[in-house]
Computed example of a mutant assay.
Amino acid sequence: MTFTDRRILDLFGIELPIIQAPMAGGTTPEMVAAVSQAGGLGSLACAQYTPQQARDAVGKVKGATSRPFNMNFFCHANPEPDPARAAAWHQALKRYYTEFGLDHSAPPPVSGRAPFDAAFCAVVEEARPVVCSFHFGLPEQSLLERVRRTGARIISSATTIAEARWLEERGCDAIIAMGLEAGGHRGNFLSEDMTTQLGTFALLPQVVDAVRVPVIAAGGIGDARGIRAALVLGASAVQMGTAYLFTPEAGIPAVHREALRRAGRHHTALTNIFTGRPARGILNRAMRELGAISPLAPAFPTAGGSLSPLRGHTEALGLGDFMSLWAGQAAALGRELPAGELTRTLAEEALTPPSVQEP
């Protein structure tokens, strides 16, 4: 058997319709290279880097494989400073500073993620990746045109039908239909209303019907059954993130890895307390006690500063109580395999029809 829908395979020049999701904080150049070398599409999470670090990471990927890979960027706008909100958030955490003997009076570290800008665009122009993907919409038009002139295929995440149409109107070559089950940050950009968010297998066929470009399914796809289901519903490929956090190439701390191993005993939830923007992670103490969605949390991407000392202290104790344990709802399906082997195994299993049970 072979994959009959070749639109994404031909568009990206890959062999397998499996895309490793870009996960800032978890993706490494080694993971990206391994997935691409196996025939899928590895995705470099450039939002975790400075432009020079992104340049260095691209060099590592290209040094390990000549296959196509994806460079991914955030397209948020940094918020205006809000000292009053930041102070209220810091005050809400005071009890934890006291509990662990930390200095609450010290200025909290600055946290953030850099949005796509001219400096990052220059890195793309140098690297000339086969695919360039964006989260939270698209960059402004002049930057987008510069990316397009490199020959890169441009894709972005849609969490609603309206977002999918918006992306197609602006020239995306393919669209990621990101369901509510997905781990990490929601890709929403036209609305902050979480009641508009659909599950993957409700969103996917509606996006397929709404746009003409190929659609990539993402969210809650953890094994070959999910891949097959997505392809049946019209996806040309799938994007999988949490599954790759189980690989030895994942750059996550030991406490996060252990939480993933126990994912079957814990549920996930959307939370804004770690960054200021809704993202799905394994429920932990901070989410339970502060509220998974807190009106006090400063705007993305600044909320993490005041939590940083608590995270560092408790992580050293082997606890994940104050850190973002990003994971999707299919985390319990994860298998600990090297990234390349996982990619090939998932593809082979997806092509193998389920065994027929005798009555």
Rank of each mutant, 00 (worst) to 15 (best):
E125N: 01
C121T: 12
V123S: 05
S133I: 02
A127R: 06
T200A: 05
R149C: 11
C172G: 01
F120V: 01
E169M: 09
I175L: 01
F136T: 05
D209M: 13
P214G: 00
P139M: 03
H135Q: 07
R113W: 11
V123Y: 12
A164P: 09
A162Y: 14
R212V: 13
F116R: 02
S156V: 03
A182E: 07
V211K: 11
V147N: 10
I154S: 03
R165I: 08
A127H: 13
L190Y: 14
N188G: 04
A182R: 10
V211H: 14
R128M: 15
T200F: 13
C121H: 11
T196H: 15
R186P: 05
R186Y: 06
R212D: 10
S111P: 04
S191L: 14
V123F: 14
V130N: 00
M178V: 07
C172W: 08
D193N: 06
E163G: 08
E140G: 01
R186F: 05
V123C: 09
P139L: 06
T159Y: 09
G187P: 04
Q206Y: 12
G151L: 00
L203R: 10
A127D: 09
S111G: 02
V123N: 04
P139R: 06
S111N: 03
D193G: 03
F201T: 08
M178P: 04
P108W: 03
V211Q: 13
P214E: 00
A177D: 12
T200E: 04
F120D: 00
T160S: 02
P205S: 07
A210K: 05
L180I: 11
D173T: 13
S142E: 15
A164Y: 06
C132P: 06
M194D: 05
R212N: 12
I161D: 09
A210Y: 11
A119V: 14
R128P: 15
A182N: 13
V211P: 15
F201C: 07
L204W: 11
E163C: 08
F116M: 05
P139A: 02
C132M: 05
E145Y: 07
T150K: 08
P109F: 02
G183A: 01
R153T: 10
L167E: 07
T196Q: 15
C172Y: 09
V123G: 04
H135C: 04
F136G: 07
P108S: 00
V213W: 09
L204F: 13
I175N: 01
M194K: 02
G184L: 00
S111F: 14
S142I: 15
A118C: 10
S157G: 13
P214M: 00
V208D: 08
V215T: 11
H185K: 04
L180C: 12
V110D: 07
E168A: 01
V211D: 13
